[in-house]
Amino acid sequence: MAFETPKITYTGKIKSIAIGKGDQAILLGDESSYPFHLFEGEMPNTPRIAMEVYDVAPEDWAEAALKPFTGVTEDPVAWAKRNVEEYKADMVCLHLISTDPNGLDRPADEAAQTAKKVADAVDVPLIVWGVDNDDKDAEVLRKVAEVCEGKHLIIGPVVEGNYKQVGAGAIGYKHTAIASTPIDINLAKQLNILLGNLGVPDEQIIVDPTTGGLGYGIEYTYSVMERIRMAALTQQDERLQFPMICNLAREVWKTKEAKLTAEEAPTMGDPEKRGILMEGVTAVVLLLAGADILVMRHPEAVKLVREMIGELMAAA
């Protein structure tokens, strides 16, 4: 018996989306194979890494995660610039933490101005992420969409409870909507159908399957992503053929294991390296499951994962 390379043929293809402005625009998606299965299909666009910026200084970040951003955490524009210029981020993901009604509850207008400033300050595409509050996000993201017309942002999370308002903003001002559902392939498909019915063009939808942290449910995310890709590529499930985004940094860094000091957890080793590798390992798992955008935090983790993507994208 001779060995024959076991290849499969795909019948579907992921849709392609373009984000960012002008010649700095980035293409995503368009895969016709499982992640990095380049021996039997194509992955014309490299998965990308977006680095986080908060619109107010983070209060509860681990020491190790704050250090690379010393001096810029109070200034989203400077922070975004550092991400791009120093840490070579492919994109920036602005988290509008200040708009949380249970926190500072800042108005939509103010947040939208921040988004605009950040979008103006960097050449790379911008993702704007709300606070997981349907109503407030609807209000804020609509405003962001309007003020940032022409920037081709990615905005979200768009959920069943606010898809009409945010979706309308995405259509009207040509941004990409993050269709976000809680780790469930059927709900993901349903929301994509709703967005389609609303009139959001396919080239303006990216799926957020909801990311569980390492040790806190990442396996659910991993499998729902693999199922989505399988349905998209081998079962022609047209309403699942979208690129995917994983907002992983906050899930990794909020866990107690990422925050324990060396004294508190001597066997877990250096807290900085631990945090970097928890983030890196999480990113690798999600890449293999089909992530097109990874939202990450620590520059060292970003660097390691970028190299990893480079190796996975090179022919063997």
Partner: peptide
């Protein structure tokens, strides 16, 4: 083995190998 690298790998292994 270093705790900072081994710990994430062991957790990942546990997660990937749980009953889906």
């Amino acid at each position: 083995f270093h705790g900072y690298g081994l710990f994430p790998l062991l957790v990942e292994r546990m997660n990937i190998y749980t009953d889906p």
